[in-house]
Design a binder for these strands. Structure first.
Length: 431
DNA sequence: TCTGGGGTCCTAGGACCC
DNA sequence: TCTGGGGTCCTAGGACCC
């Protein structure tokens, strides 16, 4: 039994490049919300030494001379392109699960060395031809080793986008050349500690005594150790519903009035409610945090959080938005410059199994809210995101001509590409 | 001037119960 | 001088992932 990890190459950057053939072979970077930091780089941009996470303003000069193409993050585009790729991967594998936005694990059974290699190379060709997106695949007997193999598949052209670790000799060689801080499951903290003990490669780690690993790096570290030694123990995920959902943003600039902050957190609350409905869940607890800008040491700092347990678990926009507004009036203090806020919904259960509270439950009101949300979701699905929003989300500003305009969000996206992939046929699925 | 967002799991320690 | 012991549940914080 083998695991294949299929991983999109520079996913965000290549999704933009798919519709801009002129950018082929040129460095491309994609920015976080508010055009704050670099969150994705094409191979060429990496080669220029542009680091991950660097604030955009520190690189302005390089971008101004056109050396590097810049894009704001375009989630609709990513969602659509990765969806197409995942569909092709799942068609090619007997067993498949998506691990993240740009990675999927496949289980391959009864294939020999050569057919594993052929399968991976063919998958790359098919996906590239079908979607324009390059992918690389790592194949091994544990997921951690497959992940390592996929790094090799990306790094060395000789692998033709597929690296297979299928013998003891290859496993040891792969471990020996792999820095400890790049191992899946070993983060910055653990890597620093391991290095202080003289453990620099994945092989050094795999040769440690198991008891010592258990003592110093608990069960998670032990699992990684076993996987590197070829013992399959990271569980296969099935499709699990989220246990908590968070929507948070930094603002473009800072907000000082409770009204402005309420507009933003109402948006996040509504987005949380939509995410809950999309996965068919309800939440019993709603939380809200508001933070000031911790980079501004000259300004007074404040981080506040509070949460409220709902009498009856809910997914209605009205309920979540209302609760969030209540929380905001509890934690908001005048005199601070707020930079970031977020809504968290947790204690999530299936919508079918609502534990109703005998005092609070109002069947008629519940029915009305459900019908209202269904109607809003349908309209927004057909006519586009945020065609209909509830009143507290609106946000009026005057434009240059003095005319009032209504905005829903205070997030900057100056370099956002068009959405070439969104078509009517994709989004109308109403009965 | 400008500094991302969204998750999960594990553990230690406190509260509480019998 | 003396001050049980063990189990469970919850929470905060740390570490990790993409």
């Amino acid at each position: 039994m083998y695991y294949a990890l299929a991983d999109l190459d520079s996913c965000y950057a290549n999704a933009e490049r798919c519709f801009r053939p002129d950018l082929k072979g040129r460095p491309v970077v994609v920015l976080s919300n508010n055009d704050g930091c670099v969150i994705a780089r094409s191979k060429e941009a990496k080669a220029l030494g542009i680091p991950m996470g660097i604030p955009f303003y520190q690189l302005q000069q390089r971008f101004r001379n056109g050396e590097v193409a810049v894009f704001s993050s375009n989630y609709e585009l990513i969602y659509d392109m990765t969806g197409r790729v995942m569909k092709m991967i799942s068609d090619a594998a007997p067993s498949f699960y998506r691990y993240s936005v740009d990675e999927a694990f496949c289980l391959l059974d009864g294939m020999d060395s050569q057919s594993l290699k052929n399968w991976g190379e063919q998958l790359h060709r098919r996906v590239l031809q079908g979607t324009g997106m390059p992918i690389s695949t790592g194949i091994a007997q544990t997921k951690t080793l497959a992940k390592m193999a996929s790094h090799y598949a990306k790094k060395y052209d000789g692998y033709k986008h597929c690296c297979v670790i299928d013998s003891e000799e290859k496993r040891l060689k792969a471990l020996e050349l792999y820095p400890i801080d790049e191992v899946w499951g070993i983060g910055r903290r653990h890597a620093a500690r391991l290095q202080s003990y003289g453990i620099r490669t994945a092989l050094d780690f795999a040769l440690c005594k198991r008891d010592w690993i258990r003592l110093n790096f608990n069960v998670v570290g032990t699992r990684t150790w076993m996987e590197l030694n070829g013992i399959d123990c990271v569980p296969n995920e099935t499709v699990v519903k989220k246990k908590s959902i968070c929507t948070s943003r930094s603002f473009d600039g800072m907000l000082t009035s409770i009204e402005d902050v309420r507009t933003q957190v109402s948006n996040y609350a509504a987005m949380c409610a939509e995410k809950l409905r999309r996965q068919g869940s309800v939440a019993a607890t709603v939380g809200l945090f508001i933070d000031t800008n911790h980079f501004r040491e000259d300004l007074p700092q404040r981080c506040a959080y509070d949460e409220e347990r709902l009498l009856t678990p809910a997914n209605s926009t009205a309920t979540i938005v209302h609760t969030t507004a209540k929380l905001l009036s509890r934690i908001f203090r005048e005199g601070y410059h707020y930079k970031r806020a977020g809504v968290i919904v947790k204690d999530i259960t299936g919508a079918q199994a609502i534990q109703t509270n005998l005092i609070d439950y109002d069947a008629e009101r519940h029915g009305k809210l459900t019908r209202l949300d269904t109607a809003i979701d349908c309209i927004n699905k057909i006519y586009g995101k945020e065609t209909v929003v509830i009143a507290s989300r609106q946000y009026k500003v005057k434009d240059a001509t003095g005319k009032a305009k209504v905005f829903a969000e205070a997030v900057k996206h100056d370099y956002k590409s068009k959405n070439p992939t969104t078509r009517w046929s994709d989004i109308i699925t109403l009965k």
